[in-house]
Amino acid sequence: MPDDTQAASLPVHAPASSFAIAMRVLPADRRAAMFAIYAFCRAVDDIADGPAPPPDRRAALERWRADVDAACAGAAPPRLSALAPHIAAYGLARADFHAVIDGMLMDAQDRPICAPPADTLDLYCDRVAAAVGRLSVRVFGLPRDDGLVLAHHLGRALQLTNILRDIDDDAAIGRAYLPRELLLAAGVEPRVCAAGAGEIALHPALPRACVDLAAQARRHYAAAGYVLRRHRGAGGRAPRLMGAVYEALLARLAKRGWACPRTRVKVGRLQRIGILLRHTVL
């Protein structure tokens, strides 16, 4: 059984990542809230991707659900002590924390996600990404309606970019998140979709499905950008930075191409700093 007692004191600082760079533009109190949300997400994600048997991972995730409920009721356990004040201060919704956990449970099933139907992938993206966005926009201080639309589109854009970046890493653990409909339309045979992630990752028609999924991601980036153009002030800077960095990553992935062998792609430190400088002055 996984030992989740070590999470009693969650880290309140993210590593030197795109997330950390984007959060630098926030005031200290809002930045602390975002790091606490990040720490929660990191903790449950580590369980979902951990080496324990699926039943043990699911049990550990349900313990996190119970702890979230306690924190939302004003009785936070020690491992959520850093997050609890922000739940109250920003009105963070219990349902969104639950959605994140539900998304992690999708990754902790006995059979890994492999060529899911498009609606299942969309539900997964909503839980593991858009729900985090719904928590985040409360911290950023965006109006409710625009915040929900932004969370919907930017969350999906970021998650689809992650899926395209991590095809081979995911295949190594039996996962293939590209939707079945795109794979079949691209020419990946049904028997290959059923065979498993390893065969999907090596199929010569996979690049065509990747092109289509990248186009979906770009549409979500464009819709998120449309919302953010109405919020040029402090509340829009952090999500604008995150979107810019990940959109640059998607552009690099597309330039590299999707055929095997796929070299690892990232947005370099200098480019990330340039994006930070460019968007900080907006």
Score class of each variant (00 low, 15 high):
Cys114Arg: 01
Cys125Ser: 12
Asp107Met: 10
Val132Gly: 00
Leu154Pro: 01
Ala95His: 13
Ala99Val: 08
Asp56Trp: 09
Pro143Thr: 07
Met106Tyr: 08
Thr120Gly: 05
Gly74Ala: 13
Asp170Ile: 05
Ala130Gln: 04
Cys125His: 03
Phe140Gly: 00
Pro77Phe: 09
Gln109Asp: 14
Asp119Thr: 15
Leu92Lys: 03
Gln159Ala: 05
Val100Gly: 00
Gly91Val: 12
Asp169Pro: 01
Ala172Val: 07
Gln109Leu: 12
Asp146Met: 04
Val137Trp: 00
Arg175Val: 05
Ala84Gln: 11
Pro116Met: 08
Val137Phe: 04
Trp64Met: 06
Gly74Thr: 13
His98Cys: 12
Gly133Phe: 00
Pro117Leu: 09
Ala73Tyr: 09
Ala130Thr: 10
Ala76Asn: 08
Ala131Asp: 04
Gln109Glu: 15
Leu160Ser: 00
Cys114Gly: 05
Ala88Met: 12
Arg79Asn: 05
Arg165Glu: 12
Ala176Trp: 01
Leu121Cys: 06
Ala70Asp: 10
Val68Leu: 14
Trp64Asn: 03
Met104Ala: 11
Val68Arg: 02
Ala89Gln: 15
Leu123Val: 14
Ile87Asp: 02
His152Cys: 06
Pro112Ile: 07
Ala130Glu: 10
Met106Arg: 13
Val132Ile: 15
Cys72Gln: 07
Asp69Met: 11
Ala75Ser: 15
Ala93Glu: 15
Leu142Asn: 00
Arg138His: 03
Gly103Met: 09
Pro143Gly: 05
Arg111Pro: 00
Arg63Trp: 07
Leu142His: 03
Thr161Asn: 06
Tyr177Val: 03
Cys125Asp: 03
Arg79Glu: 06
Glu62His: 14
Arg63Pro: 00
Ala131Met: 07
Arg58Phe: 09
Leu164Ser: 02
Ala73Glu: 14
Val100Leu: 13
Ala157Ser: 07
Val68Thr: 10
Ala130Ile: 04
His86Met: 11
Ala59Glu: 13
Ala131Leu: 07
Val128Ala: 06
Ala59Lys: 08
Arg144His: 13
Arg165Gly: 02
Arg165Tyr: 06
Ile167Asp: 01
Leu158Ala: 02
His153Asn: 11
His152Phe: 05
Ala151Val: 03
Arg63His: 13
